[in-house]
Nucleic acid binder design. Sequence first.
DNA 1: TATGTCTGATTGTCAGATAATCTAGTCAGG
DNA 2: CCTGACTAGATTATCTGACAATCAGACATA
Lengths: 223, 223
Amino acid sequence: MQTLRRPKVRDQVAGQIQKYIVDQKLGPGDRLPTETQLAETFGISRLSLREATKSLEFIGIVESKTGVGLTVGRIDMERLTEHLAFHAGLLEADPQQLIDSRVILETGALPHVARRMKDDSAIDTRLRELVDQFRSARDLKTWIELDIQFHRSLLDASGLQPLVAFGDLLHIFFQRFRESVNKAGWKAGVESHQLIVDELVKGRVAAATAELRKHIESHKERI
Amino acid sequence: MQTLRRPKVRDQVAGQIQKYIVDQKLGPGDRLPTETQLAETFGISRLSLREATKSLEFIGIVESKTGVGLTVGRIDMERLTEHLAFHAGLLEADPQQLIDSRVILETGALPHVARRMKDDSAIDTRLRELVDQFRSARDLKTWIELDIQFHRSLLDASGLQPLVAFGDLLHIFFQRFRESVNKAGWKAGVESHQLIVDELVKGRVAAATAELRKHIESHKERI
DNA sequence: TATGTCTGATTGTCAGATAATCTAGTCAGG
DNA sequence: CCTGACTAGATTATCTGACAATCAGACATA
């Protein structure tokens, strides 16, 4: 049976604060009302309000400084990843689904990347740079780091910000598979990345897509 | 210059709680000590401890139930996406980008939908039901409601939960365009949905994809 | 102008209390 | 022996009120 719970005050409040930020069209750094004012506005105690703001602060939606007040913050994915990666075991997501989703996301981005590459040579440069760094990577840790960067840059190159945001999120859940990469898979990964970039530059999107799909789906063997 | 701040109590405590979970090798559902006990252990007031646990609860690392206590939680993507709607890129999302992202997302899901349709006739039924309700929709409000449901069901039918979560997020930002749909666009939308389902049932994924793309991109005319 | 100081505003932390809710055990009735 | 209602204790949820720590800006002083 689904547990019926009374909606918790702080969650509602957290939602309302987010809504407030959007409605008022506030951006990073902008001031929010003081805790006391907010508490009065929502008709709750300052303490309950605090639990809401502290939660939001935890993931970076707001920042609070003593003696200053609350400001809208910048979400930084690294911070979040740090906390979440710590708890790889708690992440509940079907690996298979994660992989399929990534394939859809990244292969879907490729046509956009190819199109933009024609006008902006910086994209090409950036991707090649990363591939080169790959080759000189000596340990698994930096390899993983670069792999994330490569795929992020790929999505970024599509010019579609929403995809980048979603990609970041998927990566958090993906982390644990990455750690199971062995030397052979590593080597294959380098070649794969190189190939993808080469095909893209030539404008052969279909070939790049096929390679990218194969590359991502290679994770399936390790689950 | 980097601001020097006194490390905040609750962040330290949040870290310690996480450490505790890992050290004790706790998994989802396992009990944690009570708030009072934890507060004593860390030598802080129960209130400060609460701010830490609430933060962790916010992203799903722990759960707390009244009358029961704290348990280790499961982290699910839906919850996170909800809050990360604030991710910088999305806040200032360009309508064009939103549309392109949706196209990638939904057309990418179609092959999965088609495959699953073969084994599960309920999917077919569900989608047809929605199309039928479309025809009998009389005002714009219910039409929009049904449109959202249709596209959500489509993603849901792919069996890929991450896509559903992301789709929901995109819809939030999409809302404003929806309201600008006129009678003609409405009529065309009904036919379009019908066609997509028909093609899918016949297993003609490419045709369905083309139609879906056209359908979503029709929004471009209205921005 | 430059520098040190004061002050009001705001968040950080605490203690103590009451309400709401859940778990586990108790006990009556069959 | 079993089942269901009920009670008691434990635990979190929320509130009130208070004081400490910190900061930005005004103000006075040289």
